[in-house]
Structure formats: C-alpha cells, structure tokens
Design a protein around this nucleic acid. Sequence first.
DNA 1: CACATATATTTGCCTTGACAAATATACTTC
DNA 2: GAAGTATATTTGTCAAGGCAAATATATGTG
Lengths: 152, 152
Amino acid sequence: MNSESIAYSSQRESLGILLGLVRAEIVRTMEAEIAAKGLELRFTQFLILKRLARQGPMGATELARSVELDGGAMTRQLDQLESRGYLRRCPHAQDRRALRIELTDEGTALWRQLTDCNDRVLKAAQRSLNATERKQLHDYLERVLHALRDKD
Amino acid sequence: MNSESIAYSSQRESLGILLGLVRAEIVRTMEAEIAAKGLELRFTQFLILKRLARQGPMGATELARSVELDGGAMTRQLDQLESRGYLRRCPHAQDRRALRIELTDEGTALWRQLTDCNDRVLKAAQRSLNATERKQLHDYLERVLHALRDKD
DNA sequence: CACATATATTTGCCTTGACAAATATACTTC
DNA sequence: GAAGTATATTTGTCAAGGCAAATATATGTG
C-alpha cells in the first residue's frame, strides 16, 4: 500500500456518516441508561416526554416536528404514552382540529427520573470537550442545520 | 411568562435532538439530490456504495458496522444492490464464512455520478463554517463518539 | 356566505431495520 | 484433533416510521 492509498483510506468520515454514528451511540447509551432504571422507553418516547416537560403543552404536529418524527408515527406514540398514563390529549382552546398535549402528573414524575439519564449521557458524551468546545459544537451544528434548511 | 420561563423555554436543543435534526436534514437533502439526477437510491444504499468506492472491497459485517446498519438489514441491501448489478459478493480468500463485497464497473460508474451529490450536499451543509470550524466540528464529533464508545 | 385552499390529526399500507435463531466456518484450549 | 467458543452470513419475525388518503376544521377570497 503506497502512501497515497494510505492517505485515501484513512480519509475522515464525512459528516453524514459521522453524525449517524454519533447519534446511534447516543441513542444506544440513553436506552441503556433508561433500561438500567427498570424503565421501558425507547429513545423516541424519551424525546417526546423531554420536549413536553421542557416546553410545556403543545400540539401533535409541533411536537412531531420538534423531534423529527412523522405525524402518523406521532399519533401512535401518543396512543402508547397516553394509554400508559404519561400524557393527556386535551382539546385546543382556539383550534378544534388541534390537540393540546400535556404531561400528566405521572408523566412529570417519570421525567424527573429521566432527567438523571439525560444528564449522565450528555455528560458522558461531552466529557472530552471543554466548555468552549461544547458551545462551539452546538453552535456549529445549529449553523449546519440552518444552512441546509434555508437553501436560499 | 416571566423571564425565568422565557430563558427556560429558549434553552438550547440538547445534543441528542440536535444531531438527529441535522442528520435527518442531510439525509433529506442527499436523497433529493440523488432523485434530481433520476437515480433511485436511498441514503443507506448511497452510504454502502460510498464506503465500497472509498475503502475498496470488504466483508458484510465490516460494511454494516461502518454505516451503522444491522447485519440482517445489510444482507437485504446487498441483495438489492447486487440484483441491480452495482456490486458482487465474492468469496473471501482466507475465510470461507466471509464475503468480499466489491463494486462492479457499473457500481463504480454509479458512484462517479453520486460523487457530485455528495460534494454538493457537504458543501451546502458546511457553507457557513470556515475551514477551521469544519475541522473542529469533525474533531469534536469524533471525540464525542470515542467518549461514548470507550466508557472508561 | 360559498368556495377554494391550507392545516391538524388519524388510519391504512408498505418498507426498513432491529433482534433472534439457524447455519457454516474459524479459532482456542485441552 | 475434539470440544467449546466466537464470528460471518442468512432468514424469519416484528415493531417503528414514512407516505398517502380520509376527515375535520380553519382561513382566505370573491
């Protein structure tokens, strides 16, 4: 193997792949943390609860978009989480098409347990980055996101 | 809404969500670019071809791990890509369990078309980052990946 | 107001991928 | 080299998610 092909094969992962790898690892780690607490929740459900806990009640579509989930898939996740008693579908005051999805007390209590998993995973993930680097990583990712979304 | 709750609700996306959003956007953009060329390929298949084109022939398991795909799912993707003539399953010289998966000429030709998509999407994604920032983003992501994989 | 268009949610259908079991082969140890 | 263990690939099964159609309601226009 000559130096050129060495350089070639050791080429860095492109952004697309790398993001996928990191995300998959975060999902795995988070689900392991959750399971270790004896809780039965997939990452998607974790995200839904997190979003509701942090942002408060909102509609299904907004919720779906915020966790990058299809509307149909969201309906089914809500079915599950509602049947387990973690959230409620309330009618929206102004818009009779829409829902106002809110955590129940049980859901809020569950989130309190999950906070712990959340913190541990984020801490583990970022442990090799200092405060400045964490900010930068965040900032860069948001800039990439906007660059792709606003394709002028 | 008081100032505290404002600060709370404008809290930054956590890494898990943000990575998912960015990745989803990259997948969408790439698939749109591919479709715009009249090609029929999902992002996963794109990744498989890319990996083979860049790293050369390799086994199915290694390929699967490199694109973060389950082994079973890989078998089916290989079925498809092989039936469409883009790659070949050759027997591995030393290990009779394993495969040596390699691109056909047609596969290589296809990749030449895809390079274009690849470049355009990466360029678009990173357009608001300068050279240093791109390197940092890459570096940070790899550090996060390793931090999660080698849990001390 | 009537009509056309847009949005929120649900449901059906289908594809993709995860997980586990089966099979074949390699490696390790006694 | 026989037995046990580990790895590569394939296949079956199932759940999750994407897409499109259906329904209900909202909004904008003449």
